[in-house]
């Protein structure tokens, strides 16, 4: 049994919960990425990936999302790209 919890002194006080949630939501609020920005990123990513693989451009999805960093659980914003690959190009030249 968790003694801290038993005494009502959880190390996760509600204030820290609030702070953590607030930090997460602000990361997203502040990024304020314009659709144009994501479009440009998308265009560049397609261009680079195409050098190495044939991809399904219509199925491509890029978005900004919030997640916790695995090492220390810090809230972060992440650019998540889902790129369906049809075929990896012939890699003789590498």
């Amino acid at each position: 049994m968790d003694l801290f919890k038993f005494f009502g002194k959880s190390n996760k006080s509600s204030k820290n919960v609030a702070k953590e949630r607030l930090k997460l939501v602000l990361v997203h609020d502040r990024s304020d990425l314009s659709p144009k920005f994501l479009e440009m990123v998308e265009g560049d990513i397609i261009r680079v990936i195409k050098e190495y693989a044939e991809i399904d451009e219509k199925g491509l999805d890029i978005k900004l999302t919030r997640m916790k960093r695995e090492t220390d659980n810090m809230p972060m914003s992440a650019l998540v790209a889902n790129i369906p690959i049809i075929k990896i190009k012939d890699n003789k030249k590498y």
Partner: peptide, 16 residues
């Protein structure tokens, strides 16, 4: 409430 950790304090808010 700040003292018992149930309200963000001045430093927390300034920090954010």
């Amino acid at each position: 409430m700040v003292k018992r950790g149930d309200m963000m304090n001045v430093e927390d808010i300034i920090d954010i």
